[in-house]
Design a binder for these strands. Structure first.
Length: 245
DNA sequence: CAGATCACCTGCTTGC
DNA sequence: TGCAAGCAGGTGATCT
């Protein structure tokens, strides 16, 4: 906040979604205002627009770290260097003059939504609950790991039609989503292969996964093997006994 | 309008 | 050892 971007370098056309010239021109010389997060999206307010960052699957932001093979963007600020790394380049690092439509369309943040609204919105959806939790226009901020972990914690089968969840079961799911996100944040997230925080520290929450990535191992609740299916094109892990259909 | 199917990228693990 | 297939934290376009 209050820092100036002295220089901007973009090493990947892809993370700027094409217009890397506009990104460099827009960022160079800009003064940084508030930094906000909406779901998985990071918004850096600038005096002349905004920097939109989405880490995708393999993105990370490092403060005062050396650049590397997968560095896609570098911002030299008046008090340090911000490095954006992204192996797969599914993330974004873009300058906009105004708030883009895809941000306007993002759903309520998982940690700010209230239960009444969550339940109301659930009732209008008849598809399976798991893909709905990943739908960022429905609720933003929940990813594949946390959807599976929250559904297990609430003992809800991922195939359950959203509108068939009773109020108490929906309330339990709501509570578990928030609880798991907050615990995961406290543990700096889940490092499956390369996730690190801004200090370069890996997360520790992967040690607390009870279903995600644990296909075939014994369920912590009943001992039956954890099952993996594909639901909504995403690997989905659950216990067939503890999370009955 | 919801659901399915690819596509976008690179790397790691597994199995033959 | 080598090589192909499958998998991975997330969207986004297009077709049915």
């Amino acid at each position: 906040m209050g820092q100036t971007i002295l220089s901007a370098h973009v090493a990947s056309v892809r993370v700027t979604r094409g217009d890397w010239v506009a990104t460099i021109q827009g960022l160079t010389g800009a003064r940084i205002g508030a930094v906000e997060r909406h779901g998985k999206q990071i918004l850096v307010r600038l005096d002349r627009g905004l920097l939109y960052i989405h880490l995708g699957m393999t993105g990370n932001l490092l403060w005062n770290a050396p650049s590397g093979k997968y560095t896609r963007a570098i911002l030299e600020l008046s008090n340090g260097v911000l490095i954006y790394n992204d192996i797969r380049q599914f993330g974004r690092f873009e300058f906009y003059r105004e708030l883009p439509a895809n941000l306007v369309g993002v759903g309520p943040d998982a940690l700010q939504l209230d239960f009444a609204e969550f339940f109301l919105r659930l009732k209008s959806r008849k598809g399976p609950i798991k893909p709905l939790l990943l739908n960022q226009t429905f609720i933003s901020g929940v990813g594949n790991i946390y959807a599976d972990e929250a559904l297990f914690a609430a003992r809800i089968n991922p195939h359950t039609p959203a509108n068939r969840l009773s109020r108490p079961r929906a309330a339990k799911l709501f509570e578990k989503i928030r609880e798991i996100l907050q615990i995961a944040i406290r543990h700096r997230g889940s490092s499956i292969s390369n996730h690190v925080d801004a200090c370069g520290e890996p997360g520790a929450f992967q040690q607390m996964h009870v279903v995600y990535g644990r296909m075939g191992s014994a369920c912590s609740g009943c001992g039956k093997p954890i099952r993996r299916v594909v639901l909504g094109q995403r690997g989905t892990h659950y216990c067939p006994r503890c999370q009955r259909a």
